[in-house]
Amino acid sequence: MSLLEVEDLAIHFGGVKAVDGVSFAVEAGEVFSIIGPNGAGKSTIFNLISRLYKPTRGKIMFDGRDITPLQAHEIAPLGLARTFQNIELFDHSTVLDNLLMGRHTHRSTNWVQDMLFVPAVRRAERAHRRKVEDVIEFLELEAYRDKLIAGLPYGVRKVVEIGRALAVGPKLILLDEPASGLSVEESQEVAYWIEDMRRDMGLTVLMVEHDMSLVTQVSDRVLAVANGQPLAQGSPAEVQSDPRVMAAYLGTEVYT
């Protein structure tokens, strides 16, 4: 059984069919990428999976469970974390606090205990901190630990965004354009991290990305979408050579 199964997913905003009949399955332990021209509905698929949008039609199964009726905040506890394309960090907190906020689904104390700061809270805080330090070490964020997000360069924020999703301790991580706006060196680094996430952490990665070199380098399978509809699915090489995909990128109509 696949880790994530999306069946006939569709969302219509008024008359606009942003996503229309997309189906795919992500197997545990693979890196799966969604590509497509701007406005193809890639980020919308992510927003549907993380339940920020309510689908017009279709079903999303995660880990053998139908998550379509769940609310947005009920997704992360199942082990599904995500990043945002336009960086949605907590600007007025430090990097460390941002990562600690990623540990929310693992909190074991309630607000009364928190206010009294009973010993259990301190123990839990230490445990969260150890997990977060692992993430900091993995992403080499040590130098920025106590810095406020508001003052950080774009590239670092992008990494913190990935770090916060990793701090959730997910089974599946959704990366929304992790390399957009990064330099060649920085996106190469992202490629290494994605490989490490899969190999060392046993994570499954679902990614939306424009940078084809990154996609080819790390993906096991690729789904191409255009105008909200699936075009082709397969290995990176297969999808790239598919005439319909080429047509979608070049903007010509396809007659079949």
């Binding site: 993380s50 920020l52 947005a72 905040h73 009920e74 997704i75 992360a76 506890p77 974390a81 995500r82 945002f84 949605e88 960090l89 907590f90 600007d91 007025h92 907190s93 606090d97 600690l100 906020m101 990623g102 540990r103 929310h104 689904t105 909190r107 104390t109 309630n110 607000w111 928190d114 206010m115 700061f117 809270v121 839990a124 805080e125 969260h128 916060r164 959730v168």
Partner: peptide, 23 residues
């Protein structure tokens, strides 16, 4: 300094990512 306080700040600074983190 506790998870509750952090969740307050999370809600203040970015509602969408707070929801995506399970808040």
């Amino acid at each position: 300094r506790s998870p509750t306080g952090r969740s307050f700040l999370a809600v203040r600074d970015s509602e969408v990512s707070a929801r995506a983190l399970g808040i």
